[in-house]
Design a protein around this nucleic acid. Structure first.
Lengths: 215, 215
DNA sequence: TGCCCGATGTTGACCACATGAACATTCCAG
DNA sequence: CTGGAATGTTCATGTGGTCAACATCGGGCA
């Protein structure tokens, strides 16, 4: 087939990446379930089955998007923390950092609901599951969780959770912000007006800060 | 068509319910995405399009399952609370009740992951969304949330959250147990061995109890 | 009593998707 | 330069959602 003048050749050149971008776009507005192989291929201008040269199928494409979304979530948290002014009191600084990270977390969920959902979706067929060890967070260790745990460790030096319960404390904090995000996105808190939403967010963060202190 | 001896007649008689049961079964092992119209019809022994006489389509069938699942979740919470022994100290009793409810919540999620997910799924096309007022929990008010809020009110009489922040405190508590459940089900805490899982659950509950006290 | 209409099922058809097999085109290494 | 590995394409199959047209049942009314 002759290439259309100025158009693409038979070989795309960077199909894998192009598909990922298209898939991310799809996820961004529409969430993981709208990440559809055929549509991604269509957008890139390629036949559906071409994608199989680069992905095992829809599942793997989605898994790729998921990882990307997790990165962006962590980025959002770090940006929020970076914006936070420091404090002379290290205890206050540690607390502020934790809260800022959480705000960044929920903020990402609210601003990018599609991507946020994608970050926690379960692509089927699910990845082969080995029994796995006893870490609190197996997998390639999600950065968002690492950030929370480290922030809690910072807090620990000034009266936060005791060392042995710190992983669990991290999980508890994570649970709160994750649950909050989902309730705000698709859950029953979905249609809360912005004002009340902020109230709920602040209350939850207050619960996290004061609640993890005693662990 | 002649009815098979002893078999059904042309008219099923209770198709709507039969379809719901089949759909609940599907959700029970497989979650909301496996609630498939054709399969439900197949199991009931009826043609796929027959379902359209009783439901607007897959979306409405799923929505029905969702509501049912929410009920079962609340039931599980109430059962857990009922099993909890009372206490002379009303403060202790209130706290125990809250914790028991939360345990029932997470327990349901862990025991019935499919139904739990269904309880919080977002059937598409989504229900028509009016702007909605300012309640913390719009919708027909989910009983699970009501239970949590009431438990917090019980706690309030003995040093719990102040009245004006109680709805937000309820949402915060809910966030924690909801997030925890999801992280345990499909999230990064998925493969946690039972022992550690219990640790995390207890830590989270401790965070909720002590963290909502200060609101 | 008997018939007719509305409720309830059925068939057949169409469209979107995932996925596999067989075939075509490119590109690069030897 | 050339042959095989990469990378795309076309064709085909299976599953699901949904619509339109048709069939059957069952109960209420003339």
């Amino acid at each position: 087939m002759a290439a259309i003048s100025g158009g693409k050749t038979y070989h795309h050149g960077d199909l894998r990446n192009a598909l990922i971008c298209a898939a991310v776009d799809l996820a961004t507005d529409g969430g993981p379930e709208r990440v559809v192989l055929r549509e991604a291929a269509r957008r890139v201008g390629v036949s559906p089955t071409a994608a199989y040269r680069h992905f095992d199928g829809r599942g793997e494409l989605l898994r790729t998007v998921k990882i990307l979304a997790q990165c962006r979530l962590a980025d959002s948290m770090e940006r929020a923390a970076a914006r936070e002014p420091g404090a002379d009191d290290p205890a206050l600084a540690a607390e502020r950092r934790l809260v800022a990270l959480c705000r960044g977390y929920v903020g990402f969920a609210v601003d990018q609901p599609g991507l946020y959902r994608a970050a926690f979706c379960v692509p089927r067929p699910a990845e082969a599951d080995e029994p796995a060890g006893g870490r609190v967070s197996p997998e390639p260790e999600i950065r968002a969780f690492t950030l929370l745990r480290e922030a809690l460790e910072g807090l620990a030096k000034v009266g936060g959770p005791r060392p042995d319960s710190r992983p669990a404390a991290g999980a508890a904090a994570w649970s709160a912000v994750h649950g909050l995000s989902l309730l705000l996105l698709d859950g029953p808190l979905r249609r809360l007006p912005a004002q009340r939403r902020d109230d709920v967010v602040e209350s939850t963060l207050a619960m996290v800060v004061s609640g993890t202190r005693g662990l």
